[in-house]
Amino acid sequence: MMMQDLYLIVEIAGQRAVLPASFVESVVEIDEVAPVPCAPAHVFGLFALRSRVLTVIDTIAALGGDRSTAGEKQAVIVTFDGHLYGMLVDNVDDVVAIEGLPTRPRARLSPGWVRYSAGVLEHEGEPLLVIDIPAMIAGPLDLAA
């Protein structure tokens, strides 16, 4: 039997990538967040999704870019280790079924992406990076260490 898993195609920092659908709970609009002073740069803030508190991850900051500015944003809600996180994304495309296991990317990725990609999958001829969600939540190495 072929391996076939569901993935959510998103766009982060201008790069199309996929998130394993098993992590994903929903996609929400996020407006105002409560910032977390002293937290690493990629922690955008806290957001209340009804009665639950999300920790919003600024993916662009995690990749080494500037911190995102305030304003309405889209976030993919993921659950990891009993906590809820919102991963900021530029765009959400579609949920697709992709066969096969992620392979090592042959091109050399930028340092930011090296840390957060769990491989490459091909979908309709387009290579897509698989985002390593736990790594993205942990943030850049120097901060995680």
Binding site: E32, A34, V36, C38, A39, P40, V43, L46, F47, A48, S51, V53, T55, D81, H83, L84, Y85, I137, A138, G139
Partner: peptide, 27 residues
């Protein structure tokens, strides 16, 4: 009060998060 995500707890200055009536999370 509920525990905050590990990346927030790692700051070392928070004990958790809470959601007051105004539905804006508070540390």
């Amino acid at each position: 009060v509920k525990p905050a995500a590990p990346v927030v707890m790692a700051c070392g200055i928070y004990g958790g998060t809470t959601l007051p009536d105004n539905s804006r999370p508070m540390l």
